[in-house]
Design a protein around this nucleic acid. Structure first.
Lengths: 322, 322
DNA sequence: TTGAAAGCGCTAACAG
DNA sequence: CTGTTAGCGCTTTCAA
């Protein structure tokens, strides 16, 4: 900057003004500065600017669970869109489901002085963020609630969706309904299982433990478990799948053996109309999840200091076939 | 930092040492500083550190075309993975196919002093980046070549893939092959079309212009165009689709009318085994594209100053059905 | 092993 | 309209 100022025969402050399009600079000085800038290949240092001006970095941080997962990719895309509206860039990091890594990333992001934080929690204790929040860095939690921290949260109606799914099957006369889930340790899974069991209990059905299958981590396992259940002495007449990956496996197995068992799956499919066998899904708007959370965050960044809110996004049962 | 130093009764330099885990600090001073840090809720300012030390920001920038597109989401995921290996965070931005926006984003990223840049070019002139490259910010281009700038580039073998696809159809006796594409203005599309026409010409087939359909932007259009072609006086017996979205539309229409026309599509499908009708695809590794580009970038960041390279990633024909 | 002073690149607060 | 000075939060340099 000093070099540019020397070259243009002005003070650094004038260079600063020109670079920032400040008003009240004589045109000939502007021209001289701009000429010096291009001749010298000068590029302003945004870091130094924020340091001195104490202003916003125009950056927000997003910490998700697993960047490779389409669900999070969609959330990130929606967040990025809102951020771009606010002239803000997005710093994305993946916690890989590791609470320690989550904390490190979050603290790193704070050290980079992001204007706000969006978090899909992996850990269960976010008290370490209290300092940041008090110091003025807003935090919004997505998809899962925060641990030990009162903060804005945007969730899906996992319980309601699962209840609707089970009721749909009950209304069609099903009494033996199998529930396949990944892990009860994950908040969303626990909620969906809870909703399913609640709807079942409501109908006076005492759940058969053999019909609840935990640890179904991928489509292959789901297909296996489905086969196993169908081959049992008293097979289920309907399946409730608690996520996309599981649904893929169940559909595949059902289709393979031409079974007419009913299926309701949590999460919709993009190419649902190309599925070999129709099935009912519990749909929700992943983009909206990211969008709402991002909007909320920018409200906070813009100074809104009303009490933290919890938003629950609706799910919708989309009936297809059996 | 001054507050912490005062509180701990040490100099700011000692606080700095403790915060950065520097050696040769007496344990009791370390303890006192750490205590002051927690009591005061001190958080170091990474921006100020990089400013003074002149070191790396441990940040790289990624500019893609359209964050909502699964292709770019996958690229971003692969890049993020490599970056995390290098203790680096990823700043992602979407150019929305707008060259001006692309330039603004890239310059913004430079002003944020990223250690390197990964770009899926939207524009055709990247000479403005020459200054940055000379100043030591490495840039790697992905999926499409840079305009007017000699830089590392990682591409897909679009031509070779298309040629293989067409040859596959020719070997099965097809002579009337329709090619559906989005826009020839897009580098990858032009290359795929070029490859297809080359393979056709090689076989002595003078392309019928009516069989090349441009401007097929989405599945619905693709389905329409497919119907239109099949209903024509001299319909094609085979289809070559130049991307995923188009393939979806073609499959849908082919399946709907039970047509036995052959189909080869560029891009594979995640749920290909659940497609209602098998078809051959030209598969490539999107993750590898991001991974290789990111690895290359980090090599440059780590000081490799050998001449810029162009890497062409192979495609593979996966035969399925007709 | 610790600290004082200078300065990274920039802008706020004032003067002129 | 333009320039000077001080200082953002930190680390480098050098001295103790």
């Amino acid at each position: 900057m000093v070099d540019v100022a020397d070259r243009a025969g002005v003070s650094v402050k004038t260079v600063s003004r020109v670079v920032n399009n400040a008003p009240y600079v004589r045109q000939d000085l502007v021209d001289r500065v701009l000429a010096a800038v291009t001749e010298l290949g000068y590029r302003s240092n945004g870091l130094a600017r924020t340091l001195r001006s104490g202003g916003a970095t125009s950056t927000i941080g997003l910490v998700i669970e697993e960047i490779g997962n389409p669900f999070y990719a969609t959330v990130a895309a929606a967040v990025a869109e809102v951020a771009s509206t606010h002239g803000t860039m997005l710093l994305t990091a993946s916690s890989e489901e590791d609470p320690q890594r989550e904390q490190d990333l979050l603290l790193d992001l704070c050290s980079r002085r992001v204007d706000g934080l969006l978090v899909v929690p992996a850990g269960f204790d976010h008290t370490f963020l209290r300092v940041e929040v008090e110091m003025g860095t807003p935090v919004v939690f997505l998809d899962r609630p925060a641990g030990g921290l009162l903060a804005d949260t945007v969730l899906l109606d996992n319980r309601g969706g699962a209840e609707a799914g089970i009721r749909h099957l009950l209304a069609r006369g099903h009494r033996r309904i199998a529930t396949l889930l990944d892990s009860t340790a994950v908040y969303t899974m626990a909620e969906r299982l809870g909703g399913a069991q609640h709807a079942l209990a409501e109908a006076g059905i005492t759940g058969d433990p053999a019909l609840i299958r935990d640890g179904v981590a991928d489509p292959d396992t789901a297909a296996h478990v489905t086969a196993d259940l169908l081959d049992s002495a008293d097979p289920p007449t309907a399946f409730f799948s608690t996520n996309n990956r599981i649904t893929v496996g169940v559909v595949r197995e059902l289709w393979r053996r031409g079974s007419d068992a009913a299926l309701v799956g949590f999460d919709d499919f993009e190419l649902s109309h190309l599925m070999p066998r129709p099935f009912t899904v519990i749909r929700y708007d992943t983009r909206e999840l990211g969008r709402q959370a991002a909007r909320l965050l920018f409200q906070r960044i813009d100074g809104d200091d009303s009490p933290p809110t919890t938003t629950v996004l609706p799910t919708r049962l989309v009936e297809r076939g059996l």
